[in-house]
């Protein structure tokens, strides 16, 4: 990133209201985007956006995305990307169903998935460092392997999908519990991101890994911790995703890896991570992303048109929030 660009992004210490506005221009744009979405969809959906039923399904949809992108924040703030989340979610859902159906114990199911998610986090964080690989390679590896496992697991069941039997998983799909979970994860992430070493170090690693290492930070360890933190969120999200349908199949979860990336970009966070990573990027981005799909469908937009409207809005928001004024083109 160009030096001038960094100055731009971090504000140059100007005083006054306009100085403040200028230094937060990107945040303002992303918030404005969200507000604009809300206003426009309220009108075009004839107020359906705000009916009680729609609010409840919004909460249901947001929940998974929110928990995932809050967790992903730790990884993305280091400037890394995890493309394996989607298939991980799929495999976790299937495993949970297996365990629930054979033991009926939610705790056992969750703990198993949590352990797996933590292992994957550790793998993503540590193996990349040990073997000297770019983090995208380990994450691609996990994507291939988990994708394969998901396929084989479903194939073994002899059916297109499997469902939870004898256990009322839908109690986790209750709006109150979902809000509770989101708020709890949100608070923990907000705390960890702003008031603990984890957040400080992941941002520093994203901004300048060499310097961070020279400040006595065990970057490998903290990478692993950051990925594991994400793993915890993936495990929690898996519970709520499963609770929505009570079943899982070959494609369960697959879209989430890319969706989370889109959420975070919409929130105004650069994929290069670093100091401009904020918790609100994940929150605003997720809300905008979910509202876009929901609002457009509610407004009765044709399926084929939804794609292009979404794409153009994404392009516009990106053009406004991610511009880099450096002398060189940002990569």
């Amino acid at each position: 990133m160009g030096q001038e660009a960094i100055i731009k992004k971090t504000g140059n210490g100007q005083n006054g209201f306009w100085g403040l506005v200028k230094s937060h221009i990107f945040d303002i744009f992303s918030v404005l985007g969200l507000i604009l979405c809300v206003v426009i969809f309220t009108i075009t959906s004839n107020g359906n956006l705000w009916n009680a039923y729609n609010i409840s399904i919004l909460i249901e949809t947001v929940c998974g995305y929110m928990i995932l992108s809050l967790g992903a924040l730790f990884v993305y703030s280091m400037g890394f990307m995890d493309v394996s989340v989607g298939v991980q979610l799929g495999v976790y859902s299937i495993l949970m169903i297996f365990i629930l159906n054979s033991t009926g114990s939610m705790l056992l199911a969750f703990v198993t998935v949590l352990v797996l998610a933590l292992l994957c986090g550790a793998f993503n964080g540590a193996v990349a460092v040990w073997l000297g690989l770019p983090s995208i390679v380990t994450s691609l590896f996990l994507m291939f392997v988990f994708g394969g496992i998901q396929y084989i697991l479903i194939e073994r069941t002899g059916s297109n999908m499997i469902s939870v039997e004898n256990y009322d998983i839908s109690k986790f799909a209750d709006s109150k519990i979902m809000i509770l979970a989101m708020v709890a994860v949100g608070i923990v992430v907000f705390y960890a991101f702003n008031f603990t070493k984890l957040g400080k170090y992941t941002k520093s690693i994203g901004a300048n890994e060499k310097t961070t290492a020279q400040c006595g930070v065990n970057t490998t360890l903290w990478k692993v911790i950051a990925y594991m933190m994400f793993g915890v969120c993936v495990a929690i999200a898996a519970v709520f995703l499963l609770a929505r349908t009570g079943s899982a199949g070959k494609g369960t979860g697959s879209t989430y890896a890319m969706d989370i990336m889109l959420c975070i970009i919409l929130g105004g966070m650069p994929l290069s991570g670093g100091m401009s990573s904020k918790v609100r990027c994940a929150v605003i981005g997720t809300l905008t992303y979910v509202l876009l799909s929901n609002g457009l469908t509610l407004s009765g937009v044709d399926i084929q048109t939804i794609h292009i409207i979404k794409a153009v809005i994404f392009l516009a928001i990106v053009l406004l929030t991610c511009r880099d004024k450096g002398k060189i083109l940002p990569r």
């Binding site: 990133m1 030096q3 960094i6 992004k9 971090t10 400080k200 941002k203 520093s204 901004a207 300048n208 060499k210 310097t211 961070t212 020279q214 670093g274 100091m275 401009s276």
Partner: peptide
């Protein structure tokens, strides 16, 4: 600029 400091971070950080 590349090893001792994180340029994009603030002084406090």
């Amino acid at each position: 600029d590349t090893e001792a400091l994180i340029l994009s971070a603030d002084i406090a950080e």
